[in-house]
Nucleic acid binder design. Structure first.
Length: 384
DNA sequence: ATGTTC
């Protein structure tokens, strides 16, 4: 599916194996039309409506870029670690007990001087942000679709990448409040008009943007390491990939800016496409140089239901306890009752359809399929 | 997404 809209390349990667809302496609087209510097817009199979702009999409612009298109969670991404825990030696209940309440701010004595130095540098680069603010968020998962999930290997498609016997840890989180603060500050001055490339304002934003990317990555590292420590395991980072960002990019021989809004890069090696908390996650090898897809893949399953619809639809059919277990026998730890409904597997597309669509389009090769053992969404200290 | 938002 593709069309040319007053010179703008707009394409949606979809087929019968994936649900896609018309309103999301409309949002993609409207965005491509209304933001005048945009030359190309791509919807991935996880495309779904967002606040003004769709999620699961990539946009290429020339001479101008749009911070509002990236949104508030600058630097949000996935980190996958191979742990030294053997899958068969553990269980959801053992991990849950060992983790305890692990989503509160890190105790200050556990912050190393090196981390402290990194935070000081990031706080300054982000625009004189309060260091204490960053410290209070470091190592916390956040809300929405963020999680840290212990996973077992369910299937191997390409040998020699994942180890069938090991447990893996997937961390999905972002820059927490920092990216939101940077966006708010930007929108107060410039609204949604975007910035002229190479202007002072553009350089200032990109500097802050990069600080948010750095903080998000540091945050994922700390989420992972505190969890590994709690279960007395170690981990090896296999990939850490950001799906909300903007940066210089080439497209059709022209230099411009690529915005990814819930879109995983396909030009940075292996990536993971997670399903919902009651579904598989796929480690995949992107096919390189698919510029027709703006070098991007789906970043997950994508929402099927609006958050506001979930509780009404699920409460009559499921108890909270039922939603804290999944069809795999995995456990979902989440102290926020509303969030359990909003993040229920029923609220998401089936990841198999999303991945099948990308396979059919020739955008990736499968490496492995992971299934959840325990998902940590939000601890009691982190909410209420 | 969110030191949410009164």
């Amino acid at each position: 599916m593709g069309n040319t809209n007053s010179g703008t390349y707009v394409r949606v990667f979809a087929n019968d194996s994936v649900w896609m809302e018309d309103s999301a496609v409309e949002q993609l087209q409207t965005t491509a039309r209304n933001l005048s510097a945009i030359r190309a817009a791509v919807g991935l199979p996880d495309l779904h409506p967002g606040r003004g702009y769709p999620v699961g999409a990539a946009f290429f612009s020339i001479n101008h870029f749009y911070p509002a298109l990236v949104g508030g969670d600058i630097g949000c991404g996935m980190q996958l670690l191979e742990t030294d825990l053997a899958s068969h030696k553990t269980s959801p209940s053992k991990i849950e007990k060992a983790l305890g309440n692990i989503d509160s701010p890190l105790p200050e004595h556990s912050i190393t001087p090196a981390t402290y130095g990194q935070l000081e540098q990031l706080a300054q680069q982000a625009g004189d942000t309060d260091l204490r603010y960053l410290l209070s968020m470091l190592g916390t998962i956040g809300g929405g679709n963020h999680f840290a999930e212990w996973q077992a290997v369910d299937a191997i498609y390409e040998e020699g990448v994942l180890n069938k016997k090991q447990l893996y840890l997937l961390v999905h989180s972002g820059s927490r409040g920092l990216g939101g603060a940077i966006l708010r500050q930007h929108v107060e001055r410039f609204g949604h008009a975007g910035l002229v490339a190479d202007s002072t304002a553009a350089k200032d934003y990109l500097d802050q943007h990069d600080a948010a990317i750095g903080f998000a990555q540091l945050n994922r590292q700390h989420i992972a390491s505190r969890m590994l420590r709690a279960v007395r395991a170690t981990g090896r980072c296999m990939l850490d990939v950001t799906h909300n960002h903007v940066g210089v990019h080439q497209w059709q021989g022209q230099q411009g800016y690529l915005h990814r809004k819930g879109a995983t890069p396909s030009d940075q090696g292996l990536v993971v496409i997670p399903g919902s908390r009651g579904d598989f996650s796929y480690v995949v090898r992107p096919v390189a140089s698919r510029h027709d897809a703006l070098d991007s893949l789906a970043h997950g399953a994508g929402r099927k239901w609006a958050r506001s619809d979930c509780k009404g639809r699920l409460k009559p059919r499921f108890t909270l306890a039922a939603l804290q277990q999944t069809r795999f026998g995995s456990t979902v730890v989440c102290a926020d009752k509303d969030l359990i409904y909003e993040e229920a597997p029923q609220a998401y597309k089936e990841v198999d359809g999303v991945v099948q669509t990308l396979l059919d389009c020739g955008l990736l090769h499968l490496v492995a399929r992971l299934k959840p053992v325990l998902t940590y969404k939000k601890g009691a200290m982190a909410c209420c």
